[in-house]
C-alpha cells in the first residue's frame, strides 16, 4: 500500500471533482425541486395537505379527479390547444414567406424591415393593451379565442421570422441558382426547394411559438371574460377557494402539473432543437 499522503495536486483534483459534482447536484435540485414538490403535493389527499413532506407519501388522485370534473378546466385546455396551434400555424405560414424575402433576396428597405421586426419583438405588451383592446372589440373578437390568436401574433411572428430568416440564410445558394436556371418562380422555389429543407427549423420555431402561446397570460386575462373562453394559465391563476386566505392548493397543484407535463415532455424530447432555436435568435442573429 502506498502510505505517502496525497500530494497537493491530487488533493486539489479531488476537491475540484467533489466540488463539481456538488454543484451539479445543487443545480439539479434547484431546477427540478419546485416541479417535483408540486407533483407530490398534487398527489396528497386534502387531509394531509398541510403536513410538509419531502418525499412522496401517498398516491391520491382526488385532486385530479376534482379538476377534471370541472367543465371550465377542460374548456380552458381545449381553448389553449386551439389557440396555441392556430398561432403556430399562422406564425409559420407568414414567417416562411417573409423569411424567404428577408433571407434570400437583397432589396432596398430590407434592413428597415428587420429593424421593425426586432423593434416589435422588444415591445412591452402593456403598451398596446388599450389599442389592441379596441381592435379586438371592433372585430367582434372580445371574449373569443380568435382575439387571442390575433393578439399573440405580436410576439410569435417577429420571433418566428427572425429565427427562420437566420436559418434560411444558411442554406447553400446553389440550390436556388439551379431552381432559377430551371425557370422556377419564387413561389416554386419556396415550396419545392426550401420548404423540405426548412422542416427542422420550422419544427423548432413552431415549438417555441407553441410554448410562448401556451404560457401567455396578460392578453388572455384581459381579452377574455367568461370561464368558458379562458386559457389554462388564466384558469389556474383564477382558481380560488372560499376566501382569499384558503386557496385550494391541492387542485391548483394538480392543474399546474397537468398543464406543465406536456411541456416538460416536449422539452425532454426536443431539447436540442429548443436550444438551437433559442440561441439562433440571439447569438447568430
Amino acid at each position: 500500500m502506498n502510505q505517502t499522503p496525497m500530494n497537493r495536486y491530487q488533493l486539489t483534483r479531488l476537491a475540484k471533482h467533489v466540488g463539481k459534482w456538488a454543484l451539479i447536484a445543487i443545480i439539479i435540485v434547484y431546477a427540478v425541486f419546485p416541479f417535483y414538490y408540486a407533483v407530490i403535493t398534487s398527489l396528497k389527499p386534502s387531509s394531509e395537505l398541510f403536513e410538509v413532506n419531502y418525499w412522496l407519501t401517498s398516491l391520491d388522485f382526488s385532486n385530479y379527479a376534482q379538476i377534471f370534473a370541472q367543465k371550465s378546466f377542460l374548456q380552458a385546455i381545449g381553448n389553449s390547444i386551439l389557440i396555441a396551434l392556430s398561432v403556430v400555424l399562422i406564425a409559420l405560414l407568414l414567417g416562411i414567406t417573409a423569411s424567404y424575402a428577408l433571407g434570400r433576396v437583397r432589396f432596398r428597405g430590407r434592413s428597415t424591415v428587420m429593424l421593425i421586426i426586432l423593434g416589435v419583438s422588444m415591445f412591452p405588451q402593456v403598451a398596446v393593451l388599450s389599442g389592441l383592446f379596441e381592435v379586438i372589440r371592433s372585430l367582434n373578437l372580445y371574449n373569443n379565442p380568435g382575439g387571442l390568436i390575433l393578439s399573440y401574433t405580436i410576439f410569435t411572428l417577429p420571433f418566428t421570422v427572425w429565427v427562420l430568416t437566420t436559418f434560411m440564410r444558411q442554406l447553400p445558394m446553389e440550390l436556388e441558382e439551379a431552381a432559377i436556371m430551371d425557370g422556377a418562380t419564387p413561389w416554386e422555389t419556396i415550396t419545392k426547394v426550401f420548404l423540405p429543407l426548412m422542416w427542422p427549423a420550422m419544427a423548432t420555431t413552431g415549438l417555441l411559438a407553441f410554448i410562448a402561446a401556451w404560457n401567455e397570460f396578460l392578453f388572455a386575462l384581459t381579452f377574455t371574460l367568461t370561464d368558458s373562453e379562458r386559457t389554462v394559465p388564466v384558469a389556474i391563476a383564477l382558481i380560488s377557494g372560499g376566501s382569499q386566505h384558503e386557496l385550494p392548493w391541492g387542485p391548483i397543484m394538480a392543474a399546474s402539473v397537468t398543464v406543465t407535463i406536456p411541456l416538460v415532455i416536449l422539452v425532454m424530447i426536443f431539447q436540442r432543437r429548443i436550444v438551437s432555436g433559442l440561441t439562433a435568435g440571439a447569438v447568430k442573429g
Binding site: 431546477a31 394559465p233 398543464v259 416538460v264 422539452v267 425532454m268
Partner: peptide, 14 residues
C-alpha cells in the same frame, strides 16, 4: 441540461 431547461418551459403562472 434537460433538467436545467425545466424552469424555462414551465408557464410563468404555474
Amino acid at each position: 441540461r434537460a433538467a436545467v431547461l425545466i424552469p424555462w418551459a414551465i408557464p410563468t403562472i404555474v
